[in-house]
Amino acid sequence: MNKTTVKAAFKASLPVMAGYIVLGTGFGVLLSAKGYSYRWAILMCVTMYAGAMQYVGVDILASGASFISAALMTLMVNARHIFYGISMIEKYKNMGWKKWYAAFGLTDETYSLICVDPELPEGADRNVFNFLLTLMNQSYWIMGGFIGAVIGSTVEFNSAGIDFSMTALFVSIFVEQWEKNKDHLPALWGLVVSIVCLLIFGADRFLIPAMLVISVGLFLMKGSIERRALHND
């Protein structure tokens, strides 16, 4: 492991640093508001390492959800990771054992940094670079979770309404995606199905039917969505 590679990885990780520390802090505060200590925050940041899913996870923990609904929820929220993994198979193939950690730590942000094949200075090892970048990003995330949990349990403040940070996170990602993808059908489909299922099944039971109807509907619309994608290109 040479200095050039470490330096290059650290430089590449800087844009993610601020984001992960702040988002991680939000997660930590949220989790501690539900009565979980910093140990739980660290445990989740180390083993799950998934931004949106950890925010949802706070809710799943606090409501004492069933294991099957926790599994289904994770499956839906993180399904996109299969796609990230597929596009990294080639890039990671010579990484040896480091490949498995890099695959585990392939978050949206890490993916976005590595998939563009960033230019490296001479003498830097790309396989080590990918590994270190993943490791640094996760360490920022863990730091954030820890800071948030400590703030949440020591600073006295009226935390009513802090749960809205989760809503705000999803709304801003929604806006981001809306602008990136010209075909709004998948987004609108998700919105309509979720609202209808919420009205029919109620707050505690709507998720599983909504997930099923969304997935089946997306398969039925496959032809027309793919045709429109061709037109838009």
Binding site: A52, V56, M76, V77, A79, R80, T167, F170, V171, I173, F174, Q177, N181, H184, P186, A187, L188, W189, G190, L191, V193, S194, I195, L198, L207, A210, M211, I214, S215, L218
Partner: peptide, 11 residues
């Protein structure tokens, strides 16, 4: 799926 899921998460 990511597009539909984000809408679902907001709801």
């Amino acid at each position: 799926l990511p597009y539909s899921v984000m809408a679902m998460l907001v709801i």
